[in-house]
Simulated assay, not measured.
Amino acid sequence: MDSRQGRVGLGQPWQPGQLLLLIPVALIVVITAADIATGPNIVLSPLLVVAPTLTAWFAGPWTTAGIGALAMAGETVSSWRTGTLSSRSVMVEVIAIAVITSLIVFLCAVRDRHARQMARVRSVAEAAQQVLMWPLPSRLGPLRLACVYLASEEEADIGGDLYAAARTGSVARVMIGDVRGKGLPALGEAALLLGAFREAAHQHASLPDLAASLDRSMTRYLPDLESEDEAGERFVTALLVEIADAEPLVRMTSCGHPAPLLLGPDNTVHVPRLHPAPPLGVGVTDPDNHAVDVLPFGPGDTLLLYTDGVIEARDHNGAFYPLAERAAQWTDHSPEALLHRIERDLLAHTGGRFGDDVALLAIHRAPSPTPATTFSASSADTPTSAGSSCGT
């Protein structure tokens, strides 16, 4: 058993790190041989310190220390062959290589420790993202969904932007929101609103009632998340969307959130004029204060929801990102392809650096099925589940 495992191990190809290790070893051999060949008049052995320095770029502290010891051995062999082993200069060179190697090993250990800490932070962030931002289904009835999330903080996967979807009977409800603030400090408000929406979306018959319920939840619990110097200054903008399967319409209630883009199959882009209410969390708990805007939303149409981090993204000249103008070029794309295009274009516009979190959500109403397809679908007793999820 053990011998067979040993043969398998010997037959395995070398890893990239092991192949790279040949470079500093070869440097030590070449420099040592050259130093011996040139004799005591030309001293090349101090160049041996390059080997552990190079090793630290791709290997850990123990491997770096081993290469440093090998470099010291090369220095010793070279000075022995040239007859200068007992000279003071050789002793200084050996000590210098040892000191520099020790410093490199220390810095390498610090780097690896920092990398492990960042890996733990990233794993926590990914776990928090899965808990807070549940992957959206790729389909909700006749609707196809796709989403993109770009956090403003480099080492974070989530921040103050949020989205969620729920299906109640033959109606799909979608929410996109933006917490005042950005990055990881805004996670508390995002978690609060997401939890409130997932529960309230199934309990209220109209969007104004849903908006009022969300406002009550935010008003009740936001003080627990506020510091003394931020009392009354925390709120969340949100856009609530309701789309029924049988109606070619979309209903929207805006709580201080930017209006979406309505992309038509004929390369048209319409920016609706909404009647926004104040953001959630400021105490607007009366449903009568929340208006419902109704727009046509037929087969082939796409609704593009976004947060203000998209339209406020700037290039190096300070120009804002022209979302409506760019989206007009890709109205005939699928939701996934549309957001892929916008994401790449937005990254190119900003140089990959964002001043705020960015969230995009595309909702596409699929064309009406043929009568034969409709009969076949209605004949099935088992529901169809989404095969994939909306990536972030």
Rank of each mutant, 00 (worst) to 15 (best):
E93Y: 05
L305Q: 10
G387F: 03
P322C: 03
R120S: 08
T38L: 15
A151Q: 10
E189Y: 04
F375M: 12
I100L: 14
P16G: 05
G264S: 15
L140R: 01
R113S: 10
L107C: 11
D288N: 10
I342G: 00
I95D: 08
V171W: 07
V43N: 14
I42P: 03
T82Q: 12
A327D: 00
I311T: 15
A98Q: 03
V310I: 07
L303E: 06
C255F: 08
A190L: 06
A201I: 01
T302F: 00
I311L: 04
R180Y: 02
Q15M: 12
P278V: 12
V269E: 09
E189G: 14
D35C: 09
S45H: 09
T64P: 08
A238P: 08
L70S: 11
R81I: 10
T55M: 04
A146T: 01
D224G: 06
W57P: 03
P279L: 04
G183M: 12
L187S: 07
G195Q: 06
C147I: 00
T374Y: 10
L361N: 12
A386P: 10
N289M: 15
L280N: 02
A259T: 04
Q329H: 13
R7L: 12
T168A: 10
L150W: 10
A165C: 11
M72N: 11
G17Y: 06
S227F: 12
E155R: 14
E153F: 06
G391R: 14
H204M: 02
R173S: 01
